[in-house]
Design a protein around this nucleic acid. Structure first.
Lengths: 132, 132
DNA sequence: CCATGAAACGGGTATATACCCCTAAAACCT
DNA sequence: AGGTTTTAGGGGTATATACCCGTTTCATGG
């Protein structure tokens, strides 16, 4: 039993749950990561790559590349602001529609995971997340 | 508080903990994923890509590519077996040494994560893992 | 107003991961 | 023994992620 690497368990849990969400979201051509990004941009209305990276706790270059994918799919567009270094990201019309279509699919996945794990383990996930 | 996506929490937890292990393992030039792979190969002595994929619960192509990285670093080598389709993976001498050097670093990370999370949340991780 | 420093981003490189399709080889069934 | 099916891998493509470095642009202090 020495192979109980907590990291490995968490990585596997993340992969497995991601696969569930991805399976539902595939119906509208989104991944979970993309859905979360769209959601955060929608929530903020408009925000820069650095701001989004901070909000997601991800590296700036990661967000930059993920945003490029969303732009390629015409879900997100860049608008220049006063600052010549930054460009603000915001949803396109298509992006808003896609996000709206994805929401119930996301909820289905969320509910499925809830029922797989049960309330105690759901609480535990929140606690683990808070402790890191 | 509707942003409590369990998948997102798990993904973030996995990233954060991986970063801790990776930081320690960087001293011997390994990532956590590579360490786990080396460990599984060492344990088995010799096994095929499909067997390793099954053992890791990862896609075969993922393991194939990860194994290529390990071969590039001379940590793993392929040996042909009777079956012309398969090639068995096994550690090189360097791979065994690297793995031995990495073990205490892995343990340091493991202990650090244990103390960050505490016994209850450690138990919860195991439970979550089992439920998926 | 200019020099220096800080902030924002892009690109290069590397890894991890999955899906799909193709080929080769073995196994299996007449 | 030969045709069919299954198994094993490889390669293509796509995404997600991080680190480092270079460039541009802003801010700030003299």
């Amino acid at each position: 039993m020495d192979s109980l690497c907590y990291c490995d368990l968490l990585r596997t849990a993340a992969r497995k749950t991601t696969a569930v969400y991805d399976r539902y979201l595939a119906e509208v051509g989104l991944t979970l990561a993309q859905y979360k990004l769209l959601k955060k941009i929608d929530r903020a209305g408009e925000l820069s790559i650095s701001e989004l990276a901070a909000a997601c706790d991800l590296d700036r270059s990661t967000i930059g590349r993920n945003a490029q994918v969303l732009e390629k799919h015409d879900l997100v567009e860049e608008t220049s602001c006063g600052d010549g270094r930054r460009c603000m990201l915001r949803l396109t019309e298509l992006g808003r529609h896609r996000l709206a279509a994805a929401a119930p699919l996301w909820q289905t996945a969320q509910t499925e995971i809830e029922s797989m794990l049960g309330p105690d383990q759901i609480k535990a996930i929140t606690a683990i997340s808070g402790a890191l």
